[in-house]
Amino acid sequence: MTVHLKHVAIASADPDNASQFFVQVLGWTIAGKIDSRNAQGYYVTDGTINIALLKFKNRPAAGMEFAEDFTGLHHLGFQCDDIEELVDRFESSGFAPRHDVNIAQGLGMNPAKDNAEYKMHGPEGVMMDVSERGWVGTATFKPRPA
């Protein structure tokens, strides 16, 4: 199975300002804007990796271990070709699903039905995100089936 780092999420107090750093300093592009019940912010990309700059609107969606005003690394996202196999690998290695965050964000493992992202526990307490579809702005992104 192929697994590649394609997504990093950073909790930001000011996603507008943070996105401009990536655009003006690094020459990246804004691939999307987020304004959901859970978070507000942007996806920025260099064409290879997607970085989400997110101001979370509620702690359940962010994960209860994050304080309301937390800023910094939130999670890493890995694109794979078989999400069920990768989730099994996580679990067999002792890293359980983050059911709390998956439920709060409405995430699942059904790529035909939803966004096919699934949050998992990772080493050193860093949350991991696995996806078959990938993330907007990356060369390997697979848009939602029609």
Score class of each variant (00 low, 15 high):
residue 64 M to V: 09
residue 43 Y to L: 06
residue 54 L to K: 08
residue 6 K to V: 11
residue 66 F to G: 01
residue 93 S to G: 13
residue 76 L to V: 10
residue 39 A to C: 08
residue 84 E to I: 12
residue 57 K to R: 14
residue 42 Y to D: 04
residue 136 V to H: 02
residue 38 N to K: 08
residue 102 N to I: 04
residue 63 G to A: 12
residue 48 T to F: 06
residue 101 V to D: 01
residue 126 V to E: 03
residue 11 A to C: 11
residue 142 K to V: 12
residue 39 A to R: 00
residue 117 E to F: 06
residue 118 Y to F: 14
residue 81 D to M: 06
residue 131 S to R: 02
residue 121 H to Q: 15
residue 60 P to S: 05
residue 50 N to A: 13
residue 69 D to S: 11
residue 59 R to S: 12
residue 26 L to M: 14
residue 48 T to Y: 05
residue 18 A to F: 01
residue 23 V to A: 08
residue 74 H to Q: 12
residue 137 G to P: 06
residue 77 G to K: 01
residue 108 G to M: 03
residue 115 N to S: 05
residue 28 W to S: 02
residue 97 P to Y: 03
residue 47 G to D: 12
residue 75 H to M: 13
residue 57 K to L: 15
residue 89 R to Q: 14
residue 130 V to T: 11
residue 4 H to A: 11
residue 8 V to P: 00
residue 2 T to N: 10
residue 103 I to G: 00
residue 90 F to Q: 06
residue 17 N to K: 15
residue 62 A to N: 11
residue 88 D to L: 05
residue 56 F to S: 03
residue 119 K to Q: 13
residue 56 F to G: 01
residue 65 E to R: 13
residue 74 H to E: 08
residue 81 D to N: 15
residue 17 N to M: 07
residue 10 I to D: 02
residue 104 A to I: 09
residue 25 V to I: 13
residue 141 F to K: 04
residue 72 G to Y: 05
residue 104 A to N: 06
residue 85 E to N: 11
residue 121 H to V: 03
residue 34 I to R: 05
residue 75 H to R: 13
residue 132 E to C: 04
residue 76 L to N: 06
residue 145 P to W: 01
residue 95 F to Y: 15
residue 146 A to F: 05
residue 38 N to S: 12
residue 64 M to A: 09
residue 113 K to T: 10
residue 51 I to T: 14
residue 64 M to Q: 11
residue 141 F to E: 02
residue 107 L to N: 03
residue 71 T to G: 06
residue 3 V to L: 07
residue 80 C to K: 02
residue 88 D to C: 07
residue 19 S to T: 02
residue 67 A to E: 13
residue 4 H to P: 00
residue 18 A to L: 14
residue 104 A to V: 10
residue 4 H to Q: 10
residue 115 N to T: 07
residue 37 R to A: 13
residue 106 G to E: 08
residue 7 H to M: 03
residue 79 Q to W: 08
residue 20 Q to S: 10
residue 125 G to L: 10
residue 72 G to C: 07
residue 93 S to I: 00
residue 8 V to H: 03
residue 53 L to Y: 04
residue 71 T to V: 15
residue 62 A to T: 09
residue 122 G to N: 15
residue 63 G to L: 10
residue 88 D to S: 15
residue 112 A to H: 10
residue 47 G to A: 11
residue 50 N to C: 15
residue 129 D to V: 06
residue 63 G to Q: 10
residue 30 I to R: 08
residue 13 A to Y: 00
residue 61 A to H: 09
residue 26 L to G: 02
residue 20 Q to E: 15
residue 96 A to G: 03
residue 61 A to L: 13
